[in-house]
Design a protein around this nucleic acid. Structure first.
Lengths: 337, 337
DNA sequence: CTGAAAGCGCTTACAG
DNA sequence: CTGAAAGCGCTTACAG
């Protein structure tokens, strides 16, 4: 591996001067700089970030942590979309992304230890679970951090306007003439599940609509299977079943759709369904899903801005960023018969 | 930040001894070790990997590169599933994953420079594109590397048995009585697209079945839209249209399905469809998709073994690993009328 | 069983 | 405009 010493030797300058030329310091003569850059090119040299980090105390890396109850990690459609956008944005600013686990050198360690170990400049946590103690410790550590999809007053947070999203969904259904609207909620251990449920209740209340307890079904941790089962419970209501269901996540809505198909209930003719997320597949299924769209590109972009700002300023003021959502009307909702 | 010097000062031992205790050297007395570990615990110390890497020349990081024509990055359903599995496997061995782009410090640089810069121990490239010059340079560099989904004799490679997968698909359709079988191919700039096409042709030949040129439609880079359009072309064949279509990727198959629905062609009653990949959604759509399953868990696992072996042995013998595929029969195929 | 010293490849005051 | 020296936080011969 070529080092700065090799370039120094080859050009006859000191490593100090080479370093300065490489870092675009102005106080290096053009001629010197040119000579050095030529040597760099010729020898295929590129400065070692590890050595640089050791002296500058800055690693230009951001740690990414996935904590979700499904255990799907990068296969999570919402989180992976957010991280992809986040990644592109921070890359443009010079940061690389490194995944942080609870595993260092094959041994179980805390996220905090892992972050210290890698010397990351900041951390983004994709977390749907309130109660994760390790995440709490991380958030409370002095390392700049940002949590996606969770509320906390110990750290900066970013999430969609879940509450408002639910209201949009309810408004849409009411506008179509629906009065009996059920909700398949996501786990109340998650902030999103909680907020969407709260929004649903408020929306219904606004229109002076009743929500019998049988109209709230639990879909668990936003899985296809959870939505499928919850919809089966709703369909089992028979005569008393609602004419529309607002589902707290698209994956669950897909499962709900499947349950309807199996039961011979036509969507949207017999039952209208609204989802939440607008994952890739939602526009492609039949019927195409009416859903509340989360803007993953914007979440990733804003997240990068907030976290990098925090890194640069070492500010301890926590930001709370709420990203607007929008209703995408497709084929799964229809005016009530 | 606490360092090894703080621990040394606190315990009265030298940094040498502290280092040894931390690294589980046997030649440290139990008593000393205990005292040191207590101090470590108390002060919340964790060794800095950056300093360690600088002396050991080993970073315990593996670079990940995504190169695909759709530009979806981590949202790519196949690649993200492979990487998730790969990540879990290498983490257990002590490696962390860092994403490598063509961007360092906000400036455009090569993958090779980026890899040198970060001092990664090895690289895994998710690449569907033959012609990427930067990827070629990387593969030919001395850094241990492994390419997923591409063939090369300059580097270790791993991919599904695409050829055999196509044969399985054709066999299945022929068994159901189909004789007129079309293929929606993926781009021939990709290894997977090429191999699946080759397998399709061989399979048809094996059964002495003709493939008129109108029966090969181009779906491009495996996108939903590409499959949708390709299927429209096939349906436009009218009377002469096939009774079954083997599609080179599930996303394209979903698009193809949509085109059928719009055209009033019932799958599987009027037309049978087989996909390739078995992405998450395939089992959930209606009709559930018959498809050739790629074993992403196994690909990730084998990839970790091959790459880590290469890192450890510094071997220049390139491995070629082919992962078996299997046919998953669901609802989108049916005996010919 | 323990420690002093050198070195990994950089950057950054300090001096000229 | 350029260079000698110190230092970042570790590990590893070498010595005792």
């Amino acid at each position: 591996m070529t080092t700065i010493y090799d370039i120094a030797k080859k050009t006859g300058f000191s490593i100090t001067t080479v370093s300065r030329a490489l870092n675009n310091y102005t106080d290096v003569s053009e001629k010197t700089k040119k000579k050095i850059l030529e040597a760099v090119d010729e020898m295929g040299y590129y400065p070692n970030s590890i050595a640089r980090s050791l002296t500058t105390k800055k690693s230009w890396t951001i740690g990414v942590i996935f904590v979700e109850d499904l255990g799907v990690g990068m296969k999570h459609p919402f989180f992976s979309a957010v991280i992809e956008s986040f990644k592109q944005n921070v890359e443009a600013l010079g940061y690389d992304i490194i995944f942080l686990s609870q595993n260092i050198g094959g041994e179980e360690k805390s996220y905090v230890d892992h972050a210290i170990h890698r010397g990351v400049d900041g951390i983004i946590v994709m977390c749907s679970d309130f109660d994760d103690v390790e995440v709490q410790k991380l958030i409370e550590s002095p390392i700049p951090s940002l949590v996606v999809d969770l509320h906390s007053d110990k750290s900066s947070v970013i999430y969609s306007d879940n509450y408002r999203g639910s209201i949009l969904a309810v408004d849409h259904l009411v506008e179509l003439g629906h009065r009996n609207i059920a909700h398949i909620k996501g786990s109340e251990q998650t902030y999103a599940g909680l907020e969407r449920l709260r929004g649903f209740r408020s929306g219904m209340e606004k229109h002076q609509l009743d929500v019998p307890s049988s109209y709230i079904a639990d879909g668990g941790f936003f899985s296809y299977e959870g939505g499928y089962e919850a919809m089966q419970n709703i369909l089992a209501l028979g005569e008393k079943r609602p004419s529309a269901v607002f589902v707290s996540g698209d994956n669950m809505a897909l499962g709900a759709l499947k349950a309807c198909k199996e039961a011979g209930v036509s969507v949207p003719d017999d039952l209208s369904i609204v989802g939440f997320d607008d994952i890739e597949i939602s526009k492609h299924i039949t019927p195409a899903l009416t859903t509340v769209r989360q803007d993953t590109d914007l979440i990733g972009k804003k997240a990068s801005e907030v976290l990098v700002h925090q890194i640069n300023t070492r500010s301890r003021d926590y930001a709370v960023v709420m990203i607007p959502v929008s209703l995408v009307v497709r084929e799964s909702t229809k005016a009530v018969k």
